[in-house]
Structures are given as structure tokens and as C-alpha cells.
Simulated scan of single mutants.
Amino acid sequence: MTAPLPELDPKKLEKRLMRLTGKAIQDFNMIEDGDRVMVCLSGGKDSYGMLDILMKLQRKAPIRFELVAVNLDQGQPGFPKDILPNYLTELGVPFRIVTEDTYSIVKRVIPEGKTTCSLCSRLRRGILYRVAAEEGVTKIALGHHRDDLMETLFLNMFYNGKIKAMPPKLLSDNGGHVLIRPLAYVKEEDLTAWAAHRGFPIIPCDLCGSQETLKRKVVKRMLQGWEAEEPGRLDVIFASLQNIKPSHLADVNLFDFANLKADPEKAMPLPFLEAMEV
């Protein structure tokens, strides 16, 4: 089930996208004065939208920062190699196209019908980290949006036994790179509408994007179903990612349950109204 797109008012939509992206950047201090930001461009609607919005914010921001768009050509058969260079050249943004045949590796290693995302993302991440170092960038911008964050939360709960999502800002495991997700507050439906309005030359993915049985797609349909049944439910779910109560979970590494003790001096009957709130 696909959620209906909002009625398109380009000016209001652009204003909302810039406001939410700017708020995420400010809330998490994603971009600082003098930063050189590598915008990872896949050819999908989300990364196109991210680059478009960041370029608009770059012209209005009170700080100065650089953008460089980077696309990884993974060697997929029939990949239209001219689309992104032509688009980026016309746009006037510095860019780099990196060619690495990860497609053949993934197809060779992963059995037919199995999910390719894990291996594909690891290979892609390593290459992008290398390119980031070569380009001297200070931040790596990824195009994940609000829906991606929520889907990842439920994927980890349902299939990995973890309460874990995608953080808007993250230090890489080796400590050498800062990853940012400027679209963390932006709804996917708004990016879909913006891509249609702007006419981005979308390039489909023939690996993960073509796998209809992906667990992520199952979770996406579940969340869309919830939103259809009770509009606004996804807003509440997303708000929960910013309102964590470690003492009300069960992770002994996160909260010191073992040494939790009562204070006898405070052991007195609560007034009726206060007791009702416990």
C-alpha cells in the first residue's frame, strides 16, 4: 500500500523542505562554518532532493560551506553513465564519479533471491570513506529521510533484537568521518512530490531497489498501514526517537538497575493525585 501524495504547492513544499532540513542541521550541528560536505548522490529521489535543498540553503546560510557531489558507479548492467555528469555539469556543482564494480562482487557472493543490501552497503561505505579522505571533506551527507529512520527502528526490533535506528549524525566506526543525514526530519512523501516537481532524472537501482521481498519494504507497508488507520501515528513514533527513557527499558548497560535503591526517608504515602500519576 502506498500513501497518497500531498497536494503539491511548490512554494509551500519548498519552504517546508528547507525549514525541516535547516532545523535538523541546526539541532545536530551538522554543518559548520568552513565545512566541505560530500553529498552522496545515488540517482534516486532522496539524494537528488538532498543536493537540491543543500544548494538552496548554501546560498542563504549565515555560514560558508562547500558542497561536492559524489556518485558511485557500481557497474550495474545498463547503468546510464551520462545522466549524472550531464545533470551535475548543468547544475554547476563540483562533482566526482567513482567507478567500482561492486555489482559483480555482490552478485557473485550473494545467492540468487537473497537480500543484497548488507554486503552492498558495506562495500559502498568503504569506497565512500576512501573518496572522502581523498577529497578532504569534513562531513559525509547521506539522503536518508524521516521514514528511513523509523523503518530502521522497527527492522532492528523485529529482526535484530535491538532498539536502534539511524542517527541524524554519526561518527564512523574508525573515528575518521562524520556522517550526517540532513533530511532526518523530512517525510518521504514530500521528497517524492519535490522530485516530481523538479523533474529529477531518476536512475533506478537494479540491486536492492528491485527486491520486492525486502524486509524494509514489509516494514514500510506496515507503517503506511498504521498511518492510514490513524493519521498522525508516524509523527508520534518519530517523536519517540527523541524522547528516550533508559530507566523504563531493560538494558543493564544503559541504566544502573543493579544499584537502584530506595531512600527510606522518602518512603511516605503520596497524595492521592500524585499517586494516580505513578
Rank of each mutant, 00 (worst) to 15 (best):
N71F: 03
V219G: 02
K164W: 10
E134K: 14
E212K: 12
K45G: 01
M222N: 14
L72D: 00
P231L: 12
V137R: 00
V219L: 09
V109H: 07
G34W: 00
H145S: 05
H248F: 07
P80G: 05
S210L: 06
H197D: 07
E189T: 11
L67C: 03
T2K: 06
N71V: 00
I244H: 09
W194Q: 01
N243F: 13
K23D: 06
E112S: 14
N71K: 05
G199R: 05
R181W: 02
R19V: 08
P62N: 02
K217L: 10
F238G: 09
A141L: 00
V37Y: 00
F200V: 05
A250H: 15
E212G: 08
R122T: 04
K139M: 04
P4W: 00
T99C: 10
E32A: 14
L142T: 02
D251V: 08
P4H: 05
V252P: 06
F158K: 12
V137N: 02
F28T: 00
G126K: 11
S42A: 06
P167Q: 15
L149S: 09
A141I: 02
T213F: 12
D251S: 08
V68S: 06
R59G: 03
F200H: 11
L241Q: 10
R216Q: 08
E274L: 11
T99K: 15
F200T: 01
K220M: 09
D206F: 13
P246E: 09
D33F: 06
M276Q: 13
Y129N: 11
R198S: 06
Q74A: 07
T89I: 13
E90I: 05
R233P: 04
E212R: 15
V236A: 15
V219P: 06
R125E: 03
I83M: 12
L171Q: 14
S47M: 01
V131K: 07
F200Y: 13
G136R: 03
P271E: 14
K23V: 11
M1P: 12
F238W: 08
I63M: 09
I237E: 08
K220D: 11
L223A: 13
A141Y: 00
P269S: 14
R19W: 10
E7N: 08
E188H: 11
L207S: 03
D235M: 13
P4L: 05
K107E: 07
F200L: 08
D256M: 12
C40D: 02
A193W: 03
T99H: 10
F79C: 02
Q224E: 08
R108P: 01
A3Y: 15
G161I: 06
F154L: 07
V93E: 02
M1Q: 09
L91I: 07
D27K: 15
P94R: 11
Q58D: 01
M222E: 12
K164C: 14
V106A: 04
G22N: 01
D52C: 08
D256H: 11
P62C: 04
P201Q: 03
R124K: 12
